[in-house]
Simulated scan of single mutants.
Amino acid sequence: MKLLIKSLCIAFVLTVIYSVIPFQAECEQISEEVFRLHILANSDSAEDQALKLKVRDALLEYTDMLFDKAADSDEAENIARENLKTLQTVAQNVV
Rank of each mutant, 00 (worst) to 15 (best):
D74V: 08
K69F: 09
E82M: 13
V95A: 09
S73Y: 06
R56H: 03
A91L: 03
H38A: 06
K85F: 07
A46P: 06
D72M: 07
N78T: 10
Q88I: 04
F67R: 02
Q24G: 09
N83L: 03
S31N: 13
R81P: 00
A11S: 14
K2Y: 11
I17P: 03
I10N: 02
K52E: 14
I10F: 08
A71S: 11
A41N: 04
L40A: 10
T86D: 12
L87A: 01
E28D: 12
A70L: 03
K69C: 03
S43R: 06
R36F: 03
E61Q: 07
F12V: 15
E28N: 11
Q49W: 05
Y62Q: 14
K69Y: 07
R81K: 08
D68M: 11
E75I: 05
I17V: 14
A46I: 07
F35K: 01
E33Y: 07
N93F: 02
E77H: 10
M65Y: 08
A71F: 04
I30L: 15
L8G: 02
Q92L: 14
S45F: 07
D48C: 06
V13P: 00
L8H: 01
A46H: 09
I10D: 01
D68W: 08
T86C: 01
A71W: 02
I5Y: 07
D57L: 03
A80Y: 14
Q24P: 00
